[in-house]
Design a protein around this nucleic acid. Structure first.
Length: 583
RNA sequence: GGUCCCUUAGCUCAACUGGAUAGAGCACCUGCCUUCUAAGCAGGGGGUUACAGGUUCGAUUCCUGUAGGGAUCACCA
């Protein structure tokens, strides 16, 4: 299966080839000037530049070769040598009718990909800072899965660092370890009580350790003992981890974010020692200033990259060590062709160090892609990292609740939920809230910082998630009415003035998907799906459907509705968003 | 100080290998609910793409410099 622009590129490319030119020059894209043409090809200008010819002359030769081709209804040269193209409605129609799976071809053979987009620390409440990794990462997972990749999403939580030692040391020092050990993992209230205790305890202990050197030493000692799996440190840690994972799963489930693997840093502990031994044998790991490090700077580097520390002076490992060991494990267990980290952009240097270290140590081969798909910081309106008025970070649960409350209010206000039962009301409010939050985040370019604006995140009008849901809901409602009226969708799709734009737009899905895959960037799909929904809304406003007297036209329009809602919902699913049946 | 990133409409953001008249949403203005959900539609105003050069048929995009902002630079994650 080939996308529409690929088909056109092949036709135009062949014309270039016929002129003894590279067929890549025949690349056809959607026109920047829809008022002039549907598609354009800029290759004649590039070709003319290389061959030092007149670009319009080159373009004319291409047009002569294409003349008479049944695909095109218009072939024109414009400006310095743009080739403008329109396609016939028949060509458009047969392309659409011949498309399966929305025109998307899954890659074959499949490739294994490990996606890392979690990273929350256990024992801490999840806050809005975890939102971007979760939302972007989960969307990338869905997108790649749809495109035929064999994706494994790993939450890879932070469960093995100094913060754990600090927490455990505090429980032991105050003789309060029983608070942890007596928690009942099967009792939600008990789990929440401990989560709250830990959420309050960690900042307290951390603050005290900063002030008090002996407390800090105690915490570091506890960290080392934990990492050596000594009791009672390890036992307390296990319980903390179990409880935290239960709490975390609840939050991620509410957000609709899925992970295939619930691994953490601790899981790779046993890979560390042998990995370090091998690095020593290979002469990569060296002692420096009491620590064991890997020098990752190259001779021909003009920038200075600090060495990556494997073991600190006190013998504890750092997160670079566990990240390398995690790669060892992933290669061993899954041998993926790509490992992608959806992690805050500020950790770019860290990943550069880790990637260089594992390549230097031959832990991964040269064909394995290692990517840090970094995302920008969530800033407040003042341009600084987002903080609540109290100076803290907003909890994820609170954000979801706020958006949900607002959705409830909207349902009441418009009197839309009068005949909904409590279950449906809550389902609709939740779907609207999640759509608003996710789409507001995902539509931003991944790498750039962006402003966390609560009003925008919980806005339901304009370029928002709920707008998209609304379009889907209108179509579903319409199709239900048609079905109730006994109308069957037996008939032809008719390309007409009122739907041509929507049909042309719908064929662009494979390109938008590919852009998102190439850049691990869901915002391309957001941009696309919004345009598509707008085009539908315009069609819906301009064309009567159920009241259309011409039966053939009515069926054609209903078929288009059916196609649109299917594609719309598929893309929303790729963004982690689901539409209710009414709202 | 070194390295890297950013600066596009009043605000928040797009713009695919360099393409034609730089696009959306919000806000503002004008219309449209006794026919399929107005969380909507149709239309309008709003720009020296931070600034100055350069490369070329053509630059928001590539190069150099300036100004402003941010991130990061071995024993935290």
């Amino acid at each position: 299966m080939t996308s529409l622009t690929q088909k056109l590129s092949a036709l135009v490319g062949a014309a270039f080839e016929g002129q003894g030119l590279a067929k890549e020059l025949g690349l056809v894209r959607v026109s920047d000037r829809p008022d002039l043409a549907q598609y354009q090809c800029n290759g004649a200008m590039a070709a003319a530049k290389q061959a030092k010819k007149n670009p319009r002359e080159v373009a004319q030769n291409i047009l002569d070769a294409l003349e008479g081709n049944a695909a095109f209804s218009k072939l024109e040269i414009a400006g310095p040598g743009f080739i403008n193209l329109n396609i016939t409605d028949d060509f458009l129609k047969s392309h659409i009718e011949g498309s399966q799976n929305f025109g998307v071809t899954a890659i074959s053979p499949s490739e294994k990909v490990v996606l890392d987009y979690g990273g929350p620390n256990i024992a801490k409440a999840m806050h809005v800072g975890h939102l971007r990794a979760a939302i972007i990462g989960d969307s990338v997972r869905r997108i790649m899965l749809f495109a035929g990749y064999d994706v494994l999403g790993d939450v890879h939580m932070g469960d093995w660092g100094t913060h754990m030692g600090m927490l455990i040391a505090d429980y032991l020092r105050l003789d309060e370890a029983h608070l942890v050990l007596e928690t009942d993992i099967n009792d939600a209230a008990s789990v929440h009580a401990l989560m709250e205790d830990m959420a309050a305890r960690y900042p307290k202990a951390s603050g005290e350790a900063k002030e008090n050197a002996s407390l800090k030493a105690e915490a570091l000692e506890a960290t080392v003992k934990l990492q050596n799996r000594e009791q009672p440190y390890y036992g307390i840690w296990e319980k903390i981890r179990d409880v935290s994972v239960a709490g975390m799963k609840e939050t991620y489930a509410r957000l609709g974010v899925h992970f295939d693997l619930w691994k953490g840093e601790a899981d790779v502990h046993d890979y560390i020692a042998p990995m370090v031994e091998e690095m020593k044998t290979k002469g990569i790991a060296e002692e420096s200033d009491g620590a064991l490090v890997v020098h990752v700077v190259d001779e021909d580097d003009n920038k200075k990259i600090p060495p990556m520390i494997l073991y600190k002076r006190d013998g504890a490992v750092m997160y670079g060590t566990t990240d390398c060991a995690t790669i060892v494990e992933r290669v061993k267990l899954y041998n993926p062709s790509k490992m992608v980290y959806v992690v805050d952009q500020r950790q770019a240097l860290h990943f550069e160090q880790v990637f260089r270290a594992v390549r230097k140590a031959d832990i991964v081969n040269d064909h394995t892609e290692l990517t840090h798909a970094g995302f920008g910081t969530m800033n407040g309106k003042d341009g600084k990292p987002f903080k609540t008025r109290e100076g803290g970070v907003m909890r994820l649960e609170d954000l979801i609740q706020m958006a949900t409350d607002k959705a409830y209010a909207r349902l009441d206000e418009a009197n839309l939920a009068a005949d909904m039962d409590a279950h449906e009301r809550s389902d609709v409010a939740h779907k609207v809230a999640i759509a608003a939050i996710k789409f507001a985040d995902l539509q931003n370019q991944r790498q750039a910082d962006y402003v966390f604006d609560l009003d925008r995140l919980t806005s339901f009008e304009g370029k928002t998630g709920p707008y998209l849901l609304y379009q889907a809901v209108r179509i579903k409602s319409l199709l239900n009415k048609a079905r109730d009226a006994g109308i069957t969708l037996e008939g032809e799709l008719i390309v007409e003035e009122g739907n041509r734009e929507l049909l042309l737009l719908m064929t662009q899905f494979p390109e938008a998907l590919q852009l998102s895959i190439n850049g691990y960037a869901p915002h391309h799909l957001c941009e696309y799906v919004f345009k598509m929904a707008q085009a539908f809304s315009s069609f819906y406003g301009n064309c009567h459907i159920l009241s259309e007297a011409d039966e053939a036209l009515k069926v054609s329009r209903l078929k288009l509705c059916e196609m649109t809602v299917a594609q719309l919902e598929k893309i929303l699913e790729l963004l982690g968003i689901y539409a209710p049946t009414r709202m």
